[in-house]
Lab assay of single mutants.
Amino acid sequence: MFKRLMMVALLVIAPLSAATAADQTNPYKLMDEAAQKTFDRLKNEQPQIRANPDYLRTIVDQELLPYVQVKYAGALVLGQYYKSATPAQREAYFAAFREYLKQAYGQALAMYHGQTYQIAPEQPLGDKTIVPIRVTIIDPNGRPPVRLDFQWRKNSQTGNWQAYDMIAEGVSMITTKQNEWGTLLRTKGIDGLTAQLKSISQQKITLEEKK
């Protein structure tokens, strides 16, 4: 169930391209415009997507990853294993993690069937560096609404905000991946996880038929 919630949630996290980005210092504006741009692209490019579902990787690479804190999220997933990894191991892992996100997020976007969304009203940021933004996803086919909290983090150097995690039903996506990959990290280390991520990233994206 959580895996499905995570995939549905990713439908609204794909941010804007650099040329049309919203105010990078306001995570609420980023979330709002990102959702609108993403849904528009999914709707307008269905012919290309249906002809070649792996085209979704391109959308992810162009529109999402430049505005997601990939390395920060990847380091959180590694936890204690990050500090013990060599620079070469980290570089290989982050490259594999990025390719994994292209496949995983692309597969999530393949679930698009006309969903709509509501974003919580903007709250004062103050001096906060981590801000959760509640998004409610509404399914046109009558499924119950899904309420999610996207975690946005302020870059201490640039002042810009980027998304790095999502919490559904009190469970963090980062925590879920830590639990899912924990045994592999304990037995085969970061190299074993890197190899698995490379394998997963090679899987073809498949479209979910409308139910």
Rank of each mutant, 00 (worst) to 15 (best):
M1H: 01
M1L: 02
M1Y: 00
K3W: 02
R4A: 12
R4Q: 15
L5W: 03
M6I: 10
M6F: 10
M6D: 01
L10H: 02
L11N: 00
I13V: 08
A14V: 10
A14Y: 15
A14P: 07
P15H: 12
S17Y: 07
A18I: 14
A18K: 13
A19P: 04
T20I: 12
T20N: 11
D23S: 13
Q24G: 09
T25S: 09
T25F: 08
T25L: 08
T25R: 07
N26E: 06
Y28P: 02
Y28F: 08
Y28V: 06
L30W: 10
L30F: 06
M31I: 05
M31C: 02
D32F: 13
A34F: 14
A35E: 04
T38K: 05
T38G: 03
R41G: 08
L42V: 14
E45S: 13
E45W: 03
Q46M: 08
Q46L: 09
P47F: 08
I49A: 09
A51I: 09
A51M: 10
N52M: 08
D54P: 08
D54G: 09
Y55Q: 13
Y55P: 04
T58R: 08
D61T: 07
E63N: 04
L64T: 06
L65S: 06
Q69S: 14
A73S: 08
A73D: 04
G74S: 07
L76R: 02
L76W: 04
V77G: 15
V77K: 00
L78N: 04
L78T: 05
Y81M: 09
Y82T: 02
S84A: 13
A88F: 13
A88M: 15
R90C: 06
R90V: 03
A92D: 14
Y93A: 03
Y93C: 08
A95H: 10
A95M: 14
A96W: 07
A96G: 12
R98T: 10
R98G: 15
R98P: 09
R98M: 10
K102N: 10
K102S: 14
A104R: 01
A104E: 03
A104C: 13
Q107S: 09
Q107H: 13
A108C: 03
M111F: 08
H113Q: 06
Q115I: 03
Q115G: 04
Y117V: 14
Y117F: 03
Q118W: 14
Q118A: 02
Q118H: 14
Q118F: 07
P121I: 14
P121Q: 10
P121H: 11
Q123N: 09
G126S: 13
V131E: 09
P132S: 04
R134C: 00
V135I: 02
D139M: 13
D139E: 15
P140V: 13
P140M: 15
N141D: 07
R143C: 02
P145S: 04
R147C: 01
R147M: 03
R147L: 03
L148R: 04
L148Q: 02
D149T: 03
F150W: 05
Q151E: 07
K154W: 05
Q157M: 10
T158K: 06
T158Q: 06
T158L: 07
W161V: 11
M166N: 06
E169G: 01
V171Y: 11
S172Y: 03
M173Q: 00
I174E: 06
T175N: 04
T176I: 00
K177W: 12
Q178N: 04
Q178H: 02
N179E: 05
N179Q: 09
E180C: 11
E180W: 06
W181I: 07
G182W: 11
T183D: 10
L184E: 07
L185T: 14
R186F: 00
K188W: 08
G189W: 10
I190Q: 05
D191K: 10
G192P: 15
G192Y: 13
G192F: 14
L193V: 03
T194R: 07
T194N: 13
T194H: 10
L197C: 05
L197R: 14
K198E: 06
K198Y: 07
S199R: 11
I200F: 14
K204W: 10
I205R: 09
T206A: 03
T206F: 15
E208A: 14
E209G: 12
